[in-house]
Amino acid sequence: MALYRDRILTVFSLFILFSFLTYADSNFGHYTLRILQNIAIFITLAVSYNLINGVAGQFSLGPNAFLAVGAYTSAIFTLSPEEKLRSFIIEPMLWPLSVISVPFAASLLIAGIVTALVAILMAMPVFRVRGDYLAIVSLGFGEVFQVLANNSMSITNGSLGLKGLYPYTNLWWSWGICVFTVFCTVRLVNSSYGRAMKAVREDETAAEAMGINAFRIKTFAFAFSAFFQGVAGGLLAHLITTISPSLFTFMFTFNLLIIIVIGGLGSTTGSIIAAILITWGGEALRFFEEPANLFGFQYDGVPGMRMVLFSVILILVMLFARSGIMGRSEFTWEGFLGWIKNKLSAMKV
């Protein structure tokens, strides 16, 4: 019964989201639409990042590198052969890649798969031993990606980057992928695989004593999360249409870290809420960094101000509000309806 009701409510809210997006698509300005797409991409990233950091408890600092891998992969696969001939001026592109061109959807899938494979390669040495090596290796990989991308001229076009990508990414693609990611992640977390990840997070020794292969489940969580980060990279590439090795800075990872921490490490719901808040709020905070004229006073924006604020928030949340918005709890229709009922009865009194 409750299951049936929940399904109907879920479908209904997806319908509302759909209607809202349709409305937004034809009525909102370019800037607002861009923010809406950013929100979708950041939800995708945050939810998958939360899977490895929050659910499986393995501290990764890899999202910016995975974004980069996904962005490059998908861009390489959608660019037309003519465009490739035109951009690769220093060194021609490696042969099979230079003539391949696939539809956007296929390129996203390939981006996801390639990124997941990279994650698996990284996981092999890292998860063989216990300890926080994932943090260092994934952080290092971000640097190494830049080095590799700058030096593999015939694949990535070096520091020139890839230009002239077709702007495939629109409201529907970004929100479609976002809903898909949330769906897959939530289902996974609620299955035995998700429970095994949590067991490893809570106590690896006890998890292994219960027959859970910690190496395997950690690698799986990492690859699963990297898959969606790679797909998000593909989306991002075809949103901004020009990518270069230095574009995917650690800033992305840092923003995501803030999001999952504020949302509550381990809570998918929290990641979604915080992704919306931070993407929106971060946009609003941009004014700190840009020159502005405030009530007649000239204010020369200060670059880095937003990041100072964000780091302070991150530290403060860690010190004083560790469970973030949601702690480790998740949204359920049961809880939501109960909450509404409470509010209503409180209003009557």
Binding site: F254, F310, I315
Partner: peptide, 9 residues
């Protein structure tokens, strides 16, 4: 996470 925050700060 705090350490990353301090570094960024």
């Amino acid at each position: 996470i705090t350490a990353i925050g301090v570094s960024f700060l």
